[in-house]
Design a protein around this nucleic acid. Sequence first.
DNA 1: TCTCCATGAGTTTTT
DNA 2: CTCATGGAGA
Length: 693
Amino acid sequence: MNWLATLNESQLEAVIHPNGPLFVVAGAGTGKTRTLTAKIAYLIMQGVEPKRILAVTFTNKAAREMKQRVIDMTGPHAMDVWLYTFHAFGLQILRRHIQELPYGYKPSFTVIDEDDGKKIVSDVIKSLGLDTKMFSVKSLKNLISLFKSNRMEEFERSEEEKIYKGYQTYLRENQLLDFDDLLIYTLELLEEYPRIKLKYQTGFDHVLVDEFQDTDVIQYKILKVLGEVHKNLFVVGDPDQSIYGFRGANYNNSKYFLKDFNAEEIILDKNYRSTNFILKAANKLIAKNFNRPSQKNLESDLGIGTPIVYHTAQSDYQETFYVINEINRLIMQGYTYNDVAILYRNNALSRLFEDAMIKEGIPYIIYGGISFYERKEVKDALAYIRVINDCNQDFYFKRVVNVPKRSIGLKSIQVLEEKAGQLGVSMFEAIDYVDLRPQAKSALLDFKKMIISLKEDFDEMEDLYQIMPVLMSKTGYTQMLKDENTEQAEYRIDNLKELQSVFTRGDVYYEGFFYEKLNQQLDQIALYSDLDQDVTEDNHVKLATYHQVKGLEFKAVFMVVLEEGIFPGDRALMSTYELEEERRVAYVGITRAKERLYMTHAERRMVYGQIKIGYPSRFIKESRLDMPEPKYKPTYDYESHLLKTGDHVDHQVFGKGVVVSIEGEVATIAFAMPHGIKQILESHPSIKKIKKQ
DNA sequence: TCTCCATGAGTTTTT
DNA sequence: CTCATGGAGA
């Protein structure tokens, strides 16, 4: 156990802490993962059976890495540790017990992703005959999610509730579960079914949780049930890095945990990542948050380091220019492109910087975008496989029946779906009975024949790698892409080849007959959003949002577009709660940097095609170490006003209003109730002047 | 069934 | 500005 010697005092204290509830508050870069894996290894060394340990994480990547580390530390029997994401843990439980719930689910249910969910919502809206303009699919899917996970009491509009019910019915009738269901049904089984509850309460002796600050209400309840009997909950997290509130992460869970379990608390604040200029800035910034349990100040042994560099650019373009220049200077000083990250608040801001990178020939990658398993061609291929695997999967049937084009239009599909509904069979089965024009009917019959033929091929197969070639040629999918003869199509073919290698790897990883392997592989894919390609090898600057780099670190970090209205965003200005979350996002940003940190903003920026004046983000001032006000000299003319008394304006949040007076840069504007009179910077990006009628 | 234009919306997203 | 969507028309 020589790895125990590598831990610092607080880490060691946490690791050898006797049984009972413990909250390890692990600040950024303080060895959170190291402590958690050491704890698991320690438990195993103490004689706890690996299969009686449950550790949950938020990402597959974290789960996989942690498992590997524990195996490295204690040997291969650590394979038996239950180390899963919350969702994967739920999936395990539900594959075993879902038939006990009164919703008609069979253990062979399918997990759909966010995109599929939206499609279903959209179909439901249409089938209810509602005006599609009145209901945004995106926000409805969100509302449904809020409602399902008890984060919203009731729907505001009766139609919304109808859509929710339609969605839920569709899922149940088609044996589909969305991501929320994986957690909700798991909780229901654990809370309402004493036998199951007892099984899992006593099946584990220890429950460990990573990134606890990101747990939502349902996840916390699951942990609560699991830990109720033995109370051996080892929870690691950093409330200051809670930046997923919008997705349901409940900031108060840390308070609840300390109270509900009367847990002890150990704080890790010795940082191993950054120099102290950076840490001081981070400490100073986060201290501005009022709602802040478990306060801590980060400090490291890495010296004071280089001061943070602030830069005010005259325009958005010049800001990118400055960043490029500084990157070039860093390179001359011996940094590699790999050491550098450009971080911003939202994805749209990547564009400017991407353009600049291309122009200057600096290698870069942009995080985010559509991930591998969300790509159209990959989803199509998987949908085919699901239909072949089980012909009654109407949802996936609909997706592929006319891809490539087989002249089976929307109308034909609708008629078929109705027929299937009348007969109470799947669309696939209903093909024989449906009344359609001969062309459409024979196209459907041909499709059916093709699927049956593919099914026969599958039955003959022994390994997953055999799937793709047959599938792609029989369905005509590859041919369709080849005929397109575009770069885009080439790229899609490459992605399908990559899917092929996913299956090849699956052959090594999974055991059993073809269909057993296939089902395991499909489950895996359902919970994985992306391939874990190791991108750290290549040498390029990383462009990413703050959210995307949580948990990562870079020698040099550029926090760009630090402007009021963008970061913090307009929406966050009204509530302390949201503003504090924005501040935590900034805190995450600062703490990514190991040696160099730049904070930049521009005075003028194109926003939606219009030039707007930008003010430096309050986070600059709030984190700045020199006490006096930042030497910010605006270069625009104070006297030329953008607005004048009597102007009508439209504010993104407060709606329409009239300018009552102007003093300096501040306009007093009267908005309709309940907002009333507000004083706002006249050039604030959320204000738009509207022409008088 | 496909293509073209008008229209509107426009944070963050581990699963 | 730029992307997605939906309706009209070929």
